Amino acid sequence: MSVEISAKGLTLGHGGDPVAQDIDLSLTPGEVTALVGPNGSGKSTLLRALARLHTPDSGAIVLDGRDLDAYKPRELARKLSFLTQSPLIPAGVTVRELVAYGRHPHQGVLARSTSEEDREAVGWALDATRLHPLADRPLDQLSGGERQRAWIAMALAQRTGLLLLDEPTTFLDIRYQIEVLRLVRKLADEHGITVAVVLHELNQAAAYADSMAVLADGRIVARGTPAEALTVDTIKAAFGIDTTVTQDPHTGVPTCLPTWREPEPAPAAP
């Protein structure tokens, strides 16, 4: 079910101004890759380019051995799912109805009823996200974490092997952040889905991702396992802050803590 996607030599811009340059990135099938970096570093633009929602100025993106632009829209929607930041909540829509929207790429243009395959896919997505007890609840009556799981379930119902998530933990409290990230981890481990996720919290990214790509000033400045990518020097280069980085002796997962230093006093006036 996993999907392979890679970008080579990408330059991405907005109105002629480049926001990312010389981007080479391959997502490992069945693993979680976290894209991290400061605001404006090009993380979300890169993710949108992988979803064919942003046209590169130069470079190429290859999906399962074919150029990304070679796919027809419905065919592409059967390969990858993309979940944007803070999607709008449709009024009065239940969880089950939202999840069923994910089946549109698999239905004929004139389809008026769901097939057995559609029902199985929706049921599987509800099970994977533990939303069956809430399936008939209106989406706007759910907690933030429950709503985010519902949006992920809709993406899962597409039955794609590639899931692209743009800041799925934004505006959630810590409990729901962890809940969403555990679900992402489960999708890769138990269902073999290839996941790329934009995150801001470095320690969460290190704890739940197999690999990390650190972006700064529109370039990837580090790439590898969390232990390889999340170093004192990389964090300083990307974020401009001093940190200490320790590693769990059993898991090897790094944890970074800012080193708060008082600014040096300005020199006295002559």
Rank of each mutant, 00 (worst) to 15 (best):
S2Y: 03
A7N: 07
G9H: 07
T11V: 09
L12N: 02
G15L: 09
G15T: 08
A20C: 10
L25T: 11
L27Y: 06
G30V: 05
E31A: 07
E31T: 13
L35K: 11
K43D: 00
A49Y: 01
L53E: 13
P56T: 10
K72E: 15
P73I: 00
E75C: 05
S81R: 07
Q85T: 10
P87E: 07
I89L: 11
A91P: 08
G92R: 04
T94N: 12
G102K: 11
P105G: 05
G108S: 09
S113C: 09
E116P: 02
R119V: 13
W124V: 08
D127P: 09
D127V: 11
D127K: 15
A128G: 06
R137K: 13
G144N: 04
A153G: 11
L156N: 06
L156A: 10
T160Y: 09
L187H: 05
D189W: 01
H191V: 02
T194I: 03
A207Y: 02
D210S: 05
L215S: 00
G218E: 01
R219Q: 15
A222H: 00
A222I: 00
A222Q: 03
A229M: 11
T231K: 11
T243D: 03
Q247F: 05
P249V: 04
H250A: 12
H250S: 06
T251Y: 01
G252N: 03
G252D: 03
P254F: 00
P258R: 01
W260F: 07
R261Q: 15
P263E: 00
